[in-house]
Design a protein around this nucleic acid. Structure first.
Lengths: 191, 191
DNA sequence: AGCGGAACTGGAATCCGATTCCGTTTAACC
DNA sequence: GGTTAAACGGAATCGGATTCCAGTTCCGCT
């Protein structure tokens, strides 16, 4: 493919240090939020990344945006898992269950991010770049599962989205055994 | 003899104006949070209640505590509904569905409180005064529903709690049609 | 039918953390 | 090497929750 370029021509290559710092900040944020959850503060992230606060804000216009960016990374990983592990499952129902389970796993491992991912999967988010792909996987599994007769005909992707949104909350608030939640939710889609 | 208590008894009746102000603040908070959601600020509440900020803080040690207090009122109302409308249902399964539906209704009507109620139903909350009663109702319905064979034998109150927690999130983030969510969740408990 | 003082009140002051601003530094292009 | 736009750092600003306290009000007693 043609090298990346904007439509209007390339005024200048992005500075190397800028790109490096962006990555550093993102990595640091991931780590800090994992460790301290919602408590984590912007200066902490900056310090962990070894940059000034200003730099953090240069790359991410707000705390929320930073969290969202980290969340999107996660989403990407989830999508990847879904494509490689769940779509090829023997039965689509199993694949869907594994998909949900994996999402739970990720959220559980990074409690601090739950809120963000919750939000990302909720409808608040404007873009939905990665979300669309995540939903696409769920959609494919759902279609196949219907063909297999393992899922009610009237089930929709939206139902899965709501399950995920709920899952995030269950994990975030530690409302109970989230694996049970996933199992029940799957059962709720059966004919 | 004079009934004056010596040690642990009631040192004094709470001052009338204090109680009045507490109520005013609580009512104002309910209204302000309903109208403006999470955005609502403490000074707004104080103004709406016609008291100073200090007074708000005298009665509720923090913003979170105030929100929690409002949430508990809601919880009480939900419990009341559960007792009078759901427990007497023809079938326990219907009662349970109605209970969940009602919770959804309340949360939907007051988007701004969703977060608090979510939290109150999650395990974050220490007390669980009203929550215990809310769970008790769910528990009774669950037992009866099992007897009726409308719910799986291994279903627990915890499962319902998770459903409610998820429901709150679905509504809060507008993740989809929450009535469908409730229907699916109920289906997930069937044998 | 008034007094003493604890409890309550209002709002100014404080604190804390996100966000902005701007002089300085650096990498890309010539 | 020189020019310049972009990126950097961190001090300053801003917004909103929370604390503090001097003044006021009710309660219990006489």
């Amino acid at each position: 493919m043609a090298p990346s370029s904007t439509s209007a021509g390339s005024p200048r290559r992005p500075r190397a240090d800028a790109e490096r710092n962006r990555t550093r900040v993102l990595d640091a944020a991931r780590e800090v939020f994992r460790a301290r959850g919602d408590e984590a503060q912007m200066p902490e992230v900056a310090r962990a990344a070894g940059v000034g606060i200003g730099t953090v804000y240069r790359h991410f216009p707000s705390r929320a945006a930073l969290i969202a960016a980290v969340g999107e990374q996660r989403q990407a990983e989830i999508v990847e898992f879904g494509r490689t592990r769940c779509l090829p499952s023997a039965t689509a129902a199993d694949g869907l269950a594994a998909y949900l389970e994996h999402i739970g796993e990720v959220l559980d491992a990074e409690r601090g991010l739950s809120a963000s991912i919750e939000a990302a999967f909720g409808s608040t988010e404007p873009t939905g770049e990665g979300r669309a792909r995540a939903e696409d996987i769920a959609g494919q599994l759902l279609v196949r599962a219907k063909e297999e007769g393992a899922v009610r005909e009237d089930a929709e992707v939206g139902d899965v989205v709501m399950i995920v949104c709920g899952l995030a909350a269950v994990i975030r608030y530690g409302a109970g055994d989230w694996r049970r939640y996933v199992r029940n939710a799957c059962a709720g889609l059966r004919p």
